[in-house]
Every structure is written in C-alpha cells, then in structure tokens.
Write a protein that binds this DNA or RNA. Structure first.
Length: 474
RNA sequence: GGCGGCAUAGCCAAAUUGGUAAGGCAGAGGCUUGCAAAGCCUUGUACUCCCGGUUCGAGUCCGGGUGCCGCCUCCA
C-alpha cells in the first residue's frame, strides 16, 4: 500500500512519505470570518476532512491546523459599515463556522489559531525577515522583497517577470510605497480607515498582512518543515506562493512537502456569484429542508481536483443513495445475531474494504471508493435475498461499513436516533391486526397516516420494520 | 494579453503505464408483496464536445477548434 497524492509543486502524483514516519502534520487554510461560509468554502474543508480521516484510517497520527483569519480588509470594511467591533463580529462568525463544521460532520482539527491571538509571533517573524534582508519598510508598512527570493513562483509556476501588475483590477492602493509592485505587504501601517483595528508593536502601529499569519501559525504548531498544506486552487497564487517565500526565506528550510489543492464548486453548471443568486450557505440549504448528510455527500463524492457541479438533482440523488446504504445497514443489523456458517458476505466485505482503501490511497479517489461500497451492498443484498448470509457475514459487513463511515462520515449506524415512540408502535400493531383481518383499507390508511408524520413501514418476513423518513431526520 | 483546469448516458460521476467505458440517482419492464416499501433481475448499441493525427489499439497521447471554469497581489 502506497498512498499517492497529486502535488501542485511538481504537478504530478507522488508517493506520500511524511517527514516523521507514522505522523502527519498538515495545515489547511481556513475561513475569513466576516460572514457565513458558503458551500463552496465547505467543499475545501470537507476535502481536508477526508484527507485527514483517510490518513488516520491508514494508521497515521495526524495533527491538523486550520487558521481563523480574524483581521483582514473585508472584515474591517464590514465593521466600518455596521459599526460593530471587530471582535464581536469575528467571534460570531467563528462560532457559526465551527457549528457548520459540526453540522456537516467535519472532524475538528487539532488547532484553530486566530491571527489576532498571534500578533506577537507575527511581528517576530517579520523581524526575522527584516534582519535577513528579505523585507523592508516603506511609509510605515513592511513589504516582502520578491527579488531577494529566487524560488518565487515554484508553486504556481508563474514567471514573476511576466506577472502583470494589477491585471485582476484589485491592486490595493496602500501598496503604493512598495519598491516593486509585485512585493506584498507583511505589515500594513495604520490608516484612518482602519478605525480601532490596530496594534502598537515594534514595527509601529498597524496590522498584519494576510499571508504572514499562515506562515507564522503553521510553523508555530507544526514546525518549520511539515508534510501537507491544503487549500482551494485560488489560493495557489499569490497566497501559498507568498507563504513559501516568507517561510523559506525566514528559516532557510523547505516549508511544505505536499501541496494539495481542491478545485472549485459550480452550482447548476455556473460559477457561484452573488449576481447569479446561486451562492448558498449551509444554512440556506438546511432551511430549504435538505439533509446535512446529503449535502456532505454531494460535496464529498466528486474527486477533489475535479470541478464539482452542485445541483439540486444531485442533492436529491445523494439522499436516495444514503437511504440505500442505511436500509442495507438495517437489514444486516437484523441478521447480526444469527449464526449459521457460510462466509461469502465476510469475503465480500474484505474485498470491499481493500478496494475502498486502495481507491483512497490513489490521490483520494472517493468516487471509486464509494463505488466499491455500493457494489458490496448489491452483492450482499443478493446473498440476503437468497438467505445465504449469516451472522458472521453480517458482523463483517457492519464492521466494514463502520470503517467506511470513519473515513467518509456518510454512513452512521441507523438506529440510534430513530427508535419509534410508543404511540407509533401502537399504530403499527393496530395495522398488523387489521392486516390479519384482511382489512387492508384500514391497514393502508394507518400506513399513510404514519407516512404523513414521517414514519415509513416496511413489511418484512420477520414482521414490520419502522424507519424515519429521510427528510424527517435531524 | 499570460498561465492552468475541465468537457464521459436524462442527472451526478469514476476509469493503473494508451488495451476494449465503474458506481449512484432518475426512467421502463419483470420477480417478490394483499397492495406497497425494501431488495433482486433485465433495460439506455454512451459515435466518451467537434475535426484531424500518432498507434495493432485512443475517453486516455499530439495538433486545431468550440464551450465552461480558475488564477494573474489578500476569493475555498
């Protein structure tokens, strides 16, 4: 078993080997907290989640750090517009972000450092760069001197000479003092428009630039060289390029071994844009009645380097797919205590487990991994139909699905939260009585009634089974 | 203008180093069922965006086109 990842640095799939055997240190670029994150943002976090879960599943001890950017131009602008203090705004949206991660079943990273809690360390790092001649002061701001760092461009594969200043039309006016337009700010001198947002430091009054916090906080928690850095493709340039420049200039050591970037999310085949009205937050989708697991499924099920076309059809299909797995789990659970030889299903479970892991080892090929699960379910359902499944096979199947759930977060055990209350069972029993009397009109009426309140009855050879309908589940 | 990515059935989406197109959802028919549900079987000749080329063989490689998406100094 060799895990392979596509490394943006080399533009190739490479065998993965961490710096310290058995231990993976990874950093994931996190949110800027001035608003609710949208589902495109969450694709990035779910991708990082799959990565850390798979590595753990493969036996690595994982330390993941995700920054919370809580001081930045857009935050300050929002504060100026609303008059709200920076801290209360960022605290509110940080909490909303973490809540959303919980809703989507994203495992917590080990550390969520905030930029504003690390001003001292940021200042120290900038001083190091000043001392080494990689940075200079201009009009109270500190800039990184690109010309002093020859490796610049190795991640994005941009030729720095041909970068057209301001081609994106977003050049910041306060970079006016830079020696070279391509130099970027490490520290921004205080400006009246910043209001109450500033720190008085050895560098003067001002606030950190954006890129420096990631260099600072990643190295603080993970060391000067670490294994994996994740983020959206849009961050390759300039953000990650700048992180490399700052970090490697300061330490003289390679910063990160593997750079993994996720492609963006499209919505109904179009890019997400406010003008198109297709920018959805997680809360928007929940308000529309969509289930968090179905949302997770859609965001997860497309390979991370492939553009993911988020559609409402796909969301419905995801709910159905999850239902299929859930029904299968319930079926297998009901069999768990029988024991009657034969082990075909256990073999299938083992095969599926191998295929599942092998798929994810290959640059997190989640589509192939999920296909293995569904193939297993179909083959196992055949055995169940034929009465050729036994308790051992059922246990093996459950264990395998539990492992798949540990990696994907998509297949929770079905019963826990859905035990039907007493009065529901009373109606189920009443329906059974009616069926015995062949009073099918009455039986069907009860079934319809229960369906209205979100309980689905399935008649099995062993008697009725009651389950919560997907849309009625929390 | 520069750099990069993507284009596979109605929808979503996979496919080692080129080797004869996974999986899910939806639809149709059937088995099963009191009827359903769940499950199983069968079903879509998938001209793999178009046009050329290389090859015994191309979804995969090369050239050209079309469309969509991203980055080009603080957007995942």
């Amino acid at each position: 078993m060799t895990i392979r990842f596509y490394n943006t640095l080399t533009r190739r799939k490479e065998p993965f080997a961490p710096i310290v055997p058995g231990e993976v240190r990874m950093y994931s670029c996190g949110p800027t907290v001035y608003n609710f994150a949208h589902i495109g943002n969450f694709r990035a976090y779910i991708f990082a989640d799959l990565l850390r879960r798979h590595l753990k599943n493969r036996g690595y001890r994982v330390t993941q750090v995700m920054n919370i950017t809580d001081v930045e131009d857009k935050i300050i602008r929002t504060c100026n517009e609303t008059g709200e203090p920076l801290q209360t705004l960022t605290e509110r949206y940080t909490q909303a972000f973490l809540d959303d991660l919980d809703t989507l079943g994203v495992e917590r990273a080990e550390h969520y450092p905030r930029a504003t809690d690390n001003i001292g360390a940021i200042v120290d790092l900038i001083k190091r760069l000043l001392d080494k001649g990689y940075a200079y002061e201009a009009k109270g701001s500190i800039y990184f001197r690109l010309s002093a760092f020859p490796g610049y461009g190795k991640l994005s594969h941009y030729d720095t000479d041909t970068l057209r200043a301001g081609a994106s039309g977003r050049v910041d006016h306060d970079e006016y003092g830079a020696e070279d337009v391509r130099d970027f700010a490490l520290w921004k001198a205080y400006d009246a428009a910043d209001g109450a947002v500033y720190w008085d430091t050895e560098l003067g009054r001002g606030r950190p630039g954006w890129h420096i916090e990631c260099s600072c906080m990643s190295m603080a928690h993970l060391g000067e060289s670490f294994d994996i850095h994740t983020g959206g493709v849009d961050l390759i340039f300039p953000h990650h390029e700048n992180e490399i420049a700052q970090s490697e200039a300061a330490t003289g050591k390679p910063f990160v071994r593997y750079w993994l970037h996720n492609a963006h999310l499209l919505v109904e085949g179009r890019k997400m844009a406010k003008s198109l009205g297709n920018t959805y937050t997680l809360r928007d989708l929940l308000d529309m009645g969509h289930h968090p697991l179905a949302i997770r499924y859609v965001l997860l099920a497309t390979h991370y380097r492939q553009p993911n076309n988020f559609t409402f059809d796909a969301l419905e299909a995801a709910a159905e797919s999850l239902e299929r797995v859930r029904d299968f789990r319930a079926r297998v659970q009901a069999l768990a205590d029988t024991a009657n030889g034969g082990g075909r299903m256990a073999d299938l479970a083992a095969e599926c487990g191998d295929a599942f892991n092998a798929a994810l080892d290959d640059d997190l090929n989640i589509s192939a991994a999920l296909a293995a699960v569904f193939t297993f379910i179909r083959e196992s359902n055949k055995l169940l139909d034929a009465g050729e499944a036994d308790g051992d096979g059922a246990s093996a199947a459950e264990a395998m699905l539990n492992r798949a759930h540990a990696v994907t977060g998509l297949f929770p055990e079905p019963n826990a939260d859905e035990g039907a209350p007493q009065e529901i069972w009373r109606q189920v029993l009443e329906r059974q009585e009616a069926r015995k009397r062949k009073d099918f009109a009455r039986a069907d009426a009860i079934r319809d009634e229960l369906a209205q309140s979100g309980w689905i009855i399935e008649d099995t050879p062993k008697g009725p089974r009651v389950k919560r309908s997907f849309e009625h589940r929390a």
